[in-house]
Design a protein around this nucleic acid. Sequence first.
DNA 1: TAATGAATTTAGAACAGAATAAATTTTAGC
DNA 2: GCTAAAATTTATTCTGTTCTAAATTCATTA
Lengths: 140, 140
Amino acid sequence: MPTPSMEDYIEQIYILIEEKGYARVSDIAEALSVHPSSVTKMVQKLDKDEYLVYEKYRGLVLTAKGKKIGKRLVFRHDLLEQFLKIIGVKDENIYNDVEGIEHHLSWDSIDRIGDLVQFFEEDDQRIEALLEIQKRAGEE
Amino acid sequence: MPTPSMEDYIEQIYILIEEKGYARVSDIAEALSVHPSSVTKMVQKLDKDEYLVYEKYRGLVLTAKGKKIGKRLVFRHDLLEQFLKIIGVKDENIYNDVEGIEHHLSWDSIDRIGDLVQFFEEDDQRIEALLEIQKRAGEE
DNA sequence: TAATGAATTTAGAACAGAATAAATTTTAGC
DNA sequence: GCTAAAATTTATTCTGTTCTAAATTCATTA
């Protein structure tokens, strides 16, 4: 099992490769707001645990295992963003909150939140009713 | 600002004092599944930061600041438990998930989740509809 | 193809939180 | 009050992640 920090790296590497075809140390460092030397160290660990294949100075490629996990992590991240957006959390809080909680929810919870998103997407009146409650709560 | 770990301790101390009138090092250790020596160290830090007053070997009392925060933390924890329960997360996952995410959500998100709980409590049909979606999703 | 600047890696230290083991203090039973 | 057991504390070590600073490798271009 990857640690939360390892998940951050795998997720970000997956996104970078999806977007640009490759993931350089410096890109990863920038995206995660850490120093390049931290990336190198973590990438060595991810190689040892076989989430990716890393060649010193040359770059890295996700393994099948790494890709599979990366894909799920990105899905989870996006779902949580969607969820917070739907229930009306301010944009400025969404990214940090998702970043904080994504590593700490069971897949059971993720699936239930998926159903919940579905629930609201299926019928606009539900969101309307929720907004109504928020207006009421805000006035108190 | 307390760190997540500090929040765990403050929250648990608040609960113990609420339940039994006091919080011994060994009770805190047991409740948080850490060793007593770790509790001592953290309690010293919480004393320095004025969340509580600690007297070596004798015990501790929350300050006004500690009580106020403890109360909010317990409220937040309970709300998140309620939320996961409502959306159908299995009991066996609820505690760990709440424990994991409670320290990482903005109060904006907490408030929106509060509204959401309200939304479902207000009308049983809403929960029914959600259950329906879950049944459907489970069959696929 | 040699030099320079950019990117990467290594080595070592910091930091937070927790563990272990040993020492100290408190509490209970006699 | 004294002693044994329980609770607590101290001192030290460990783990995981990050940082800094220095060394190395790579890439460009002249």
